[in-house]
C-alpha cells in the first residue's frame, strides 16, 4: 500500500489547511471588494475604470504564479519522480489558465475605456496571451495520452521548456513592441500609485492566493482520487 501512503498524508495536511484557506479567502475577499469599490477614490486620470485594476493585476500575478507552480512541480517530477508532484502540476494548470484568461478579458475591458480599444499589441498583453497558449499546450498534452505517467512526464518536459522560453518570449515581445508602438503608450508602472490603491490591490491579491490554495487542494484531492480509481479498476480487471 505504499502507493497510497503519501497521498493519505497529503490529504490529512490538506484537510488541516482547507479551513484556514476558506477563512482567509472570505475575509480578504469581503474587505478587498469593499476597498475596491467604496474604500478607494477614483483615479485622477482614469476615473472609475481604475477599479478594474484591482481584479486585473492580481489575476495577472496569479497567471504567472500558477505557471511557476506548474514548472516547480514539473521540475520535482522530472528530477525526483515524486508521485504527488506530477499531480500538482495537473491540478494547478487549469487554475492558472483561468486566471490567465481572466487577466486578458479584464485587461480588454479596462483597455476600452482607458485606451479606447479592447486589444492593443502591447508587450504585457501579448506575452500573457502567449502564456495562455502555453497553458493550453500543457493541458492538451495531458489529455493526449492514455497512460497517465507518460502524459505527466511529457507535460512536465513541455512545462520546463516553456519556463526557459518565458523570459525570452517576454523580452522579444517587449522588444518588438518598442519597435512598432508609438512612444505614447499608457503605462501602469508609473511611480504614482497611491496607498489608497495599493491596499485594495493587496487585499484582492491575498484573496486570489487563498482561492488558489483552496481550489488547488481540492483539485489535488481530485487527482489523487482519480489515481486511486485507476488502480482499483486495474486490480479489479486483473482479479
Amino acid at each position: 500500500m505504499h502507493r497510497f501512503a503519501n497521498p493519505a498524508q497529503f490529504n490529512r495536511l490538506a484537510d488541516r489547511i482547507l479551513p484556514w484557506a476558506k477563512l482567509v479567502l472570505a475575509a480578504s475577499l469581503v474587505y478587498g471588494i469593499y476597498l475596491a469599490f467604496l474604500g478607494s477614490p477614483p483615479d485622477q486620470y482614469q476615473g472609475e475604470s481604475v477599479r478594474i485594476m484591482y481584479v486585473h493585476v492580481p489575476a495577472a500575478w496569479m497567471a504567472m504564479f500558477c505557471y511557476l507552480v506548474v514548472a516547480g512541480a514539473s521540475f520535482t517530477e522530472f528530477v525526483w519522480r515524486h508521485p504527488l508532484a506530477i499531480l500538482a502540476g495537473k491540478a494547478a494548470a487549469p487554475i492558472g489558465a483561468t486566471f490567465t484568461a481572466l487577466a486578458l478579458i479584464t485587461g480588454a475591458l479596462w483597455g476600452k475605456p482607458t485606451w479606447g480599444t479592447y486589444w492593443q499589441w502591447d508587450g504585457r498583453m501579448t506575452s500573457v496571451l502567449v502564456l495562455f497558449f502555453l497553458y493550453l499546450g500543457y493541458m492538451a498534452i495531458w489529455r493526449s495520452m492514455d497512460e497517465e505517467d507518460k502524459a505527466g512526464r511529457a507535460a512536465s518536459i513541455l512545462a520546463l521548456v516553456g519556463v526557459i522560453n518565458l523570459p525570452i518570449i517576454k523580452f522579444s515581445v517587449e522588444w518588438w513592441n518598442t519597435l512598432h508602438q508609438p512612444a505614447s503608450v499608457f503605462r501602469l508602472d508609473g511611480p504614482t500609485i497611491s496607498a489608497d490603491m495599493l491596499w485594495p490591490l493587496f487585499m484582492m491579491a491575498i484573496a486570489f492566493k487563498a482561492y488558489f490554495v483552496l481550489v488547488f487542494l481540492y483539485r489535488m484531492k481530485l487527482e489523487i482520487n482519480r489515481r486511486k480509481l485507476s488502480v482499483l479498476r486495474m486490480s479489479r480487471v486483473t482479479g
Partner: peptide, 9 residues
C-alpha cells in the same frame, strides 16, 4: 466595463 470585469471574474 467595471461590472463586466468583476462579473466575468
Amino acid at each position: 466595463f467595471v461590472i463586466g470585469a468583476y462579473g466575468v471574474t
